[in-house]
Structures are given as C-alpha cells and as structure tokens.
Nucleic acid binder design. Structure first.
Lengths: 104, 104
DNA sequence: GACTTACGTAAGTGTCAACTTAAATATAAG
DNA sequence: CTTATATTTAAGTTGACACTTACGTAAGTC
C-alpha cells in the first residue's frame, strides 16, 4: 500500500500512469512517449508499477499490454482520507450516523 | 501538487504526518518519536513537508508547533480520483471482453 | 532451423537525497 | 549581557535508485 505511494511518486512513473489511464498500451508504445530515455529504463519503471499493484499486464503475441489496476489506487485513497479536514470527517460521520438512525 | 506526493512518499515523513494528524506537536516532540534519528534530520523532513504545503508552522516561545494542512491533501485526493474513474471500469470491462474473444 | 520483433533482465555507473556533526539563530529568563 | 533551551542551517558523507549498455528470452514468420 505504501509501496504504491512510493511507486507513483516518481515523475517518469507518474507519466506512465497518466498515459495508460486513457487507454491500455503496449510497453513499446509507452516507451515511445519518452524521448531521452531508453526502452529498458521504461521497462524497469513498468516493473515497479506492476509490483506495486498499479498496473496489470496482458500478453498479445510478442507484445505486453498494460492497463491501470484501479484496486491498487483504492487503498491509497483511504490512506489519504485520514488527512482530510477533520471538520469534514466529523460532518461525514454525523451524517452517516443520522442515516443509520433514520433507517432503523 | 506532485511535490506533495513526493514529500509524503518517504517513510519518515509519512510517519511524521501520522503523528501530527492526531494533534499538533512541537518539533522536539516529533523528533522524540524517532530513535536512531537525530533532531536535525527530523527538522529537515519537516522542512520538506512544510514546503510541500502539508504542514503549517506556528511559533510559541522557543518552540515551533506543527499541524496538518488539510488543503495540501485536497489536490492529492483529486489526483488519485483520476485513476478511480468510472470510465476506467468500462475500459477494464472492454479489455476483459477482448481477452475472452481472443481466447476463443 | 534461422531470423525478426518486442520485450525483459543483468551488470555496472553517476547522481541525488537522507543522513551525520558542527555552527548559527531565536526566544526566554536571570 | 550571559546562559539555557529549542530549533534550523551549513557542510560534508554515503547508500539507494534511476539510468546506461549488453545480453537473454519468448513468440511469430519464412
């Protein structure tokens, strides 16, 4: 979970995520978007993202196609919510309590 | 915004954020929670978090007291939601359909 | 089998950031 | 002004990691 946070907090890797977010892409297509960076370098970054659970791989012929793995971001979202405005949290909690009470 | 992401993606700094989240703390109190780490080291981390907009400082006598700055996390939340978009779900579904078709 | 395409992996290197110790700064109190 | 306390800033060291080039691997084509 923290591994995912570390993985995406690197400029090249973050760019990869933004690219793949729009539509799944092959490793070669991803690497094509980076000039001044070799293909192995990009491949290594993809490996980190995959290990962190932010990307999934699928093979098609000699190509490997990657897409976002939304579940990998779910945990991060929860992690961040802990730092959200306490006043909002209280409001939210109160609203949910109210909701429960109303249902019973 | 990305600076904030990088700032919190470091174990010591993330721990600092978790500590201060509960209640504001002085630099000394924060440093007291880390054994095997000098005060200057912690101070430098605090500096990074402050610069990234995740902490705010307030002075009281010789002490400097820090607390979370929720606005600093707001942008990050939005950033993450870009990867948790309903459109992604559609993409995933389409990809799975494609996968099935390819296999048959 | 030989070749090509599309990748990943291995091994080595250079840079940067997380640390250290030492010195500086700010506020308070005698 | 001197001393004490709380903390940052300066300067220098070192290990991790983002790169490179070279090699390995897997699938497709002739």
């Amino acid at each position: 979970m923290f591994e995912a946070l570390q993985a995406m907090a690197e400029p090249t890797r973050f760019t990869i995520l933004q690219l793949v977010r729009k539509s799944e892409m092959s490793a070669g297509e991803i690497a094509g978007n980076f000039k001044g960076l070799t293909r192995p370098a990009v491949s290594q970054h993809i490996g980190v993202l995959k290990k962190a659970g932010l990307l999934v791989e699928r093979r098609a012929g000699t190509s490997r196609i990657y897409r976002i793995r939304p579940q990998g971001f779910a945990g991060l979202k929860i992690l961040l919510e802990d730092f959200w405005d306490p006043r909002l949290e209280k409001l939210k909690a109160a609203a949910e309590k109210e909701e429960k009470r109303r249902k019973s």
